[in-house]
């Protein structure tokens, strides 16, 4: 006997909406990554070139987006700043996701005291917002790219540890794990052959979401002067500069803020779209 699948009115429309999110996210992210990559080869001006005579020029009067207090071309700063922010975010999230996933899988498979110890450690790490650990680390390492990457990566580790642990626990109850154990596979083999492929979708979705969060955090660190060191452009520091000239040159504050919001929205939409597409269960209580 086969159960008939009831047709649900409105499903098509929602399906369209889902693909819309995935598509919008992919286009936004793709475009900004393309701009970041382009900045490695070409920018309208040399972003660090100072032109005091052309300082604080409004958009279109000098370059597409105007110039800052030192006469630097804002569009060029924006392109390189985007590339810098993205590279820090990607490095931090990849680092955090790899470490966290490993910890989560080990905790779930070994269980007992090691599991409890690892997860309490994760709780402790999670208690430090990245801005706080970046402040502590910058006293230790000095502020810069490394400091920002480590601080954001550190905060990312517990997110993936919890996710990987919860998903691994669910998968370990499946029959094919029992079969694999019966076939004599050791824990490491099971983790690589069965656990990892089955949690990869959820990890990928979370990586996308965390990338958005990492961009947001990096911009905050840049604003406080705790991220990549000058003269290398950063979206956050552009906003810090803009604050000084807020009434004189409001355009300095607009472009970097909008760029940050677009990158983050792009990653969030992409993550939401991927989640629906890959049908990853979102379990807040896990």
């Amino acid at each position: 006997m086969s159960a008939a699948v009831p047709s649900m009115p409105g499903t098509r429309r929602f399906a369209l909406l889902r693909h819309g999110r995935l598509l919008t996210g992919a286009i936004l992210t793709g475009a900004l990554v393309a701009v970041a990559l382009l900045s490695l080869l070409w920018t309208p001006e040399v972003p660090t070139r100072l032109r005091i005579l052309a300082k604080l020029k409004p958009p279109l009067s000098e370059g597409l987006l105007g110039t800052d207090q030192l006469g630097r071309d804002i569009l060029s700063l924006l392109m390189v700043g985007t590339a810098n922010s993205l590279s820090i975010a990607v490095a931090a999230v990849v680092l955090g996701a790899a470490t966290g996933t490993l910890i989560g899988i080990v905790a779930a498979m070994r269980r007992g005291a090691l599991d409890a110890l690892l997860m309490r450690m994760m709780d402790a790490v999670f208690a430090f917002p990245p801005i706080l650990s970046a402040m502590m680390l910058s006293a230790l390492l000095g502020s810069g790219r490394l400091n920002a990457t480590v601080a954001i990566g550190l905060f990312t580790v517990p997110v993936f540890a919890r996710l990987a642990r919860a998903d691994t626990k669910r998968i370990l109850r499946r029959d094919y794990i029992l079969a694999a154990r019966g076939a004599g596979k050791n824990a490491a083999r099971i983790a690589v052959d069965h656990v990892l492929p089955n949690i990869a979708g959820a990890i990928l979705v979370q990586v996308t979401i965390q990338l958005g969060l990492a961009i947001l955090t990096e911009s905050g660190l840049g604003f406080l002067g705790l991220s990549i060191s000058p003269p290398a452009p950063s979206l956050g520091r552009m906003l810090a500069d803009a604050q000084t000239y807020l009434t004189l040159a409001p355009w300095m504050a607009l472009a970097p803020g909008i760029t940050i919001a677009l990158i983050v929205a792009g990653f969030n939409l992409l993550g939401d779209g991927l989640r629906d597409r890959l049908d990853v269960r979102r379990d807040v209580s896990a």
Partner: peptide, 13 residues
């Protein structure tokens, strides 16, 4: 979507 993506310090500015 917009609120989640916007840095709070930029909203402040």
């Amino acid at each position: 979507q917009l609120g989640i993506a916007t840095p709070n310090f930029w909203i402040g500015l």
